[in-house]
Amino acid sequence: MEEYLIILFRTLLLYLLILVIFRLMGKREIGELSILDFVVYIMIAEMASLSIENTEDPLINTLLPIIILVIIQITLALLSLKSKKFRDVVDGKPTVIINNGKIDEQEMKAQRYNFDDLLLQLREKDVGNIADVEFAILEPSGKLSIFQKNQGSQSGGQQDNGSLALPLIIDGEIQEDNLTLIDKNKEWLLEQLKKKGHYDPGKISFCSYQNGKFYVDLIDHEST
Rank of each mutant, 00 (worst) to 15 (best):
D91C: 14
L218F: 04
L189G: 04
H221C: 00
P201R: 12
I66R: 02
E29S: 14
N161T: 13
I169T: 01
S80P: 05
W188D: 07
L190S: 08
F38P: 04
K195S: 10
K186P: 13
L120I: 12
D91L: 01
Q121K: 15
E46V: 12
F147V: 01
K125H: 12
V216R: 00
V127L: 05
S153W: 05
G157T: 08
Q175I: 15
I182K: 13
E222V: 07
L12N: 09
I98F: 02
G202I: 06
V96D: 02
Y4F: 13
A77C: 04
K194M: 11
V20N: 07
F86M: 06
S153D: 10
V96W: 03
F38V: 11
E173A: 15
Q159F: 10
N129T: 09
G31E: 12
L16N: 10
V96S: 03
G101I: 08
Q73T: 09
I204Y: 04
S155H: 10
V90A: 07
I42T: 13
S141C: 10
K27V: 10
F115Q: 08
K93D: 10
E53G: 05
Y15V: 08
I68H: 05
I219C: 05
N54L: 05
I137L: 02
D217T: 00
I42G: 06
S145E: 01
Q159V: 12
I169R: 04
P140T: 15
